[in-house]
Design a protein around this nucleic acid. Sequence first.
DNA 1: CGTAGACTTGAAGTCGTTCAACGGGTGTGG
DNA 2: CCACACCCGTTGAACGACTTCAAGTCTACG
Lengths: 245, 245
Amino acid sequence: MTDETHSPHMISRRLESIFPITDEESQAFKELPVQVVALKADRDIVSIGDRPHQCCMVLEGFTCVYKLSQAGKRQIMALHLPGDIPDLQSLHLAVMDNSIATISPCTVGFIQHADLRRICECYPRLASALWRETLVDAALMREWLLNIGQRDSFTRTAHLLCELQMRLRAVALINGPAFDLPITQEQMADAVGISTVHMNRVFQALRARSLIKRCKSEVTILDWQELQEAGEFEPHYLHLREAVA
Amino acid sequence: MTDETHSPHMISRRLESIFPITDEESQAFKELPVQVVALKADRDIVSIGDRPHQCCMVLEGFTCVYKLSQAGKRQIMALHLPGDIPDLQSLHLAVMDNSIATISPCTVGFIQHADLRRICECYPRLASALWRETLVDAALMREWLLNIGQRDSFTRTAHLLCELQMRLRAVALINGPAFDLPITQEQMADAVGISTVHMNRVFQALRARSLIKRCKSEVTILDWQELQEAGEFEPHYLHLREAVA
DNA sequence: CGTAGACTTGAAGTCGTTCAACGGGTGTGG
DNA sequence: CCACACCCGTTGAACGACTTCAAGTCTACG
């Protein structure tokens, strides 16, 4: 909530990871006024039914998109990392059809819709880049739908871990096999659509097969190849510009 | 494959159902060159891995977006009706991360990416309308994710029926409680993520509770109120301009 | 008239849920 | 500094929803 300068870097890095933009366009982004805010874990950033006049960019931490069933069960339909804009849709969809919350303590940056619209008019390629962002979000949701609809809980979980690892790499937040994953088993369970108790057992199975190791909030992938196979993970759907080895 | 004139009407009607556009913009759409093709049921229109140079607009019939798991199980992640553009994403995402197939016999219209890009440049509001289209598609997927991840099979199926009824109404394809739903139980099962056998039992339960009636490919909703409650259906996520009673 | 595809049925089996309880670490207030 | 509370992770056992297999019926269509 202090350093306002690293935020535009964040977003342009994310955009560039999936779409080539020029220096001038990148620069335009960096000059956008951003209101930076720090938030505790498990707080709503935007709630279903809201009519926001701004978008929220993740700067630090993890956020999630979620909805509740009538029984009060929560389905997480996306996880967002630094550089992502979880509610970019609100630029064209007046009322939120989902909530967005922090998974871990976060700092986020708010950008006014008006500013985004203006920049989209001046730089049509940036508009395309943002459009593309929302399309990649949708592509991830399709994969999650396949995951939840057709794969068993073990495969689903392995798949999610692979996805997170690769996305974190793509924005250069990690480079080795270990990374910080400040997310509880309950939140993981909500993301793959199983119960907390069962998520715990899946984690045990993953450890038993020596696929991962977990120590506090740090996850280490012990066998990337095996984990990918266990999770039926094919990274094409991430639409990254360059394949990450 | 014969009448090329009704197709642009179709798309503009769909766009207008969620976004106000001017006559001039609507006109621009109607002048787009469209290649109309008739297809049998259960045929791929675009396949995963393709790099299409055109988009496909549904003119008659139903299409679906799907992916296969390694075990060969199919998850349908969206159903598209006349007026929809199932692969609009391909405008900005070079390679398809999903396949698109016909559910029933269909006629579809292909529009070149180049033409769409041109019209987006000339009419930025149309570009926004198309962007919005893809965002609504994503909103539907979020609801499907909630449906499949957190609701039981009975609720899921009721929900899907409500959604289809309301979307068909929104484009004025139906007005009464009965409508043509040329889709097999197997396809329905793939859409809600359950087995064919179980889908059959869910249908029996829906009939036993007098919520729906099915005769050939025609579905009649006997109690709209009850079906909505049974499916936990709240239509906000469809982002229709006007609530349909 | 025969065949293929869609729908239907029963029974057995599996995966995941639910309930209930306990352990361990961490932070907070007395 | 200790005690307590809380959250997270863990465990066992019973239950339930859905799957799978296998067979049989119905209808449409060539």
